[in-house]
Amino acid sequence: MMNFIKTLQENGYRLQKTSFSQKDVIETQKELVKMGYPFLPLEFIGFLKNYNGLKGEDCGILGISPADRVLDILVFNEIHNGSKDMVILGYDDFCFLVYDEVQKDYLLVDRQTGDELESFSADGLPEALNAIIHY
């Protein structure tokens, strides 16, 4: 993950100070479950401590109550999530990046048809985030 964060910095994305508390994380997790979606993976929350919502060109990584509403993980999932086993973590103009709780892996799915395009194992979050962000 450190390599990925370093790459983001090299591409002009300044590290953000954590803008959420532990309480915010718990509230978001509760809200997601209430909406019928799985918990956010812990490693993803770890990433959000460095970049809580990241806007790239035609793409984004969602965050916990970030300043930009477009990147709010609750708002985005409320609009675009039609599955109960997955939670959307990011997007580009072609795909959604989701965490599949059943398979315990990260997937790129076609946003138009819902087809799985690529999968990353449970320890493949940096590769999955790298696949959705375009700098």
Binding site: H80, N81, G82, M86, R111, T113, G114
Partner: peptide, 10 residues
């Protein structure tokens, strides 16, 4: 645009 259940009909 919706992320759908895997295995659902296209």
């Amino acid at each position: 645009d919706k992320a759908k259940q895997q295995g659902d009909a296209k």
